[in-house]
Simulated assay, not measured.
Amino acid sequence: MVVLLTGCATVFFDVGSQSVLPHLVGRDGLVRANAAVVSLIAAGNVAGRGAGGGLVQLLTAPVAVACAAAACLASALRLTAVHRTPVPTPALLGKPARLSAQIAEGLRHVFGNRELKALAVTAALSNLGSQIINTMLPVLFVRQLHYPAGVLGLFWAAGGAGLLLGARWARPVATRLGHGRALGIVGLCLAPAGLLVPLVDHGPWLWLAGTGWLPALFKTGMDNVLGVSLRQHMTPDHLLGRMNATFRFLLTGALAIGAAVAGLIGELTTVRTTLWVGGAFLATAFLPAFLSPVRARRSLPQQQRS
């Protein structure tokens, strides 16, 4: 029940935060703002997962969970300082107010646009691969390789460092190559590094797997900045919530499916085989965006208004 409620709250938070951001910073500031947000999240992953592994190893898992709960409470209290931003409502815009109609409108907007559809499929495949890998990593590290929890935390922290670096480099790389071209070229060059993760083992193989995990998540960090900025620019103000809800449904759905697929493949085959499946998804997730008009886009689209 706790996991269910936490997941529901996370979905509402993610949709709301990505929808309100254009109103808070203006569309011209979206790339900078998204880079800052993703950088903070990645920094939290580096510090949090590394510290989490250490806390579990030193003070047991319940203490680590209590620390995470306290951090979430502090975050919620801090959000009360954000001022309210008026958002167009369906009634004011003459749009149908029924929930089913709004869901359908969001789906039509995303899947009726080749670039948005490509971004959605790429992000969903990336989440699927990451979740398959992350589900199996604790089993491999702790049960099979007998590493302490702190080593797993450091491995995850290396991925967080990749996210952080990708977010920080997103703007300069996009300025040099173009926003869509940056997504395509970086994906082509770095996504295949995900195939190194299943090689994790003792000795140098651990370092080799970490070397693959970091650039694979560097690509994810860049996607999280440039992909989100692109889709926000492609969406009128009154559709931001519906567009983000559609993306969030697909992305969280991919996480749920990834965890289930990981368990099923792990049960029928081996942990190592499951990691190879996750690595294959990570290595090829960039293809929908790379093969779409996104790859040719050098600049952000003209601002969409309600």
Rank of each mutant, 00 (worst) to 15 (best):
residue 7 G to H: 05
residue 8 C to M: 06
residue 9 A to T: 04
residue 13 F to K: 04
residue 16 G to N: 07
residue 21 L to I: 08
residue 28 D to H: 10
residue 29 G to K: 02
residue 30 L to W: 01
residue 41 I to Y: 14
residue 52 G to Q: 09
residue 54 G to D: 11
residue 63 V to N: 10
residue 69 A to S: 12
residue 71 A to V: 15
residue 74 A to E: 06
residue 77 L to S: 12
residue 79 L to I: 15
residue 86 P to K: 00
residue 88 P to F: 00
residue 91 A to E: 01
residue 92 L to C: 04
residue 96 P to D: 03
residue 97 A to N: 08
residue 103 I to P: 03
residue 104 A to I: 07
residue 109 H to D: 03
residue 113 N to L: 10
residue 113 N to K: 00
residue 114 R to D: 11
residue 114 R to M: 09
residue 125 L to C: 06
residue 130 S to M: 15
residue 131 Q to S: 12
residue 142 V to E: 03
residue 150 G to R: 12
residue 163 L to F: 13
residue 166 G to K: 02
residue 168 R to Y: 13
residue 171 R to T: 13
residue 174 A to E: 05
residue 174 A to C: 04
residue 176 R to C: 11
residue 186 V to Y: 09
residue 189 C to L: 15
residue 189 C to T: 15
residue 191 A to F: 07
residue 192 P to G: 11
residue 193 A to W: 14
residue 199 L to K: 02
residue 202 H to W: 07
residue 222 M to P: 11
residue 228 V to W: 14
residue 230 L to H: 00
residue 233 H to L: 13
residue 235 T to H: 01
residue 237 D to R: 01
residue 242 R to H: 01
residue 251 L to D: 08
residue 255 L to G: 08
residue 256 A to G: 09
residue 265 I to D: 00
residue 268 L to A: 12
residue 269 T to S: 11
residue 276 W to D: 03
residue 286 F to Y: 07
residue 286 F to L: 04
residue 288 P to V: 00
residue 290 F to T: 06
residue 296 A to E: 06
residue 296 A to Q: 12
residue 300 L to M: 05
residue 306 S to D: 06
residue 306 S to M: 00
